[in-house]
Amino acid sequence: MSPRFAPGDRVRVAEREVAGHVRTPLYIRGKPGVIERICGAFRNPEQLAYGEWDGPAVPLYRVRFQLGDVWPSAEATRDTLDVEIYEHWLSSEPFEHRLESKPA
């Protein structure tokens, strides 16, 4: 499975609620961010936790969020938060919202 996103791409985390062993924290669901790097491809923990060992490897990204986008009341809105998120939790954000600068 080749990665769908590249560093610098604007993405949004899915809002969905799923039961089971999910590694996408609740606090980050629905939030917009930017792909910081591609970490590689890993088996999906949502399957691994239930003994499905032979599922496909899923691209994993580090996504960078502005703290102010995650918590409206953040102390310093320009501070950032990087979270590892599997591809099936991400969708593209429209191009015109692309940030000026890509993360290093």
């Binding site: 590694r23 924290p25 590689g40 890993f42 580090r62 310093a76 950032t80 990087d82 590892e84």
Partner: peptide
């Protein structure tokens, strides 16, 4: 200081 940006890293998966 205010002009130092904080980068928090949440180890949610394989890294």
């Amino acid at each position: 200081p205010d002009d130092v940006a904080v980068r928090v890293h949440d180890s949610t998966a394989d890294m």
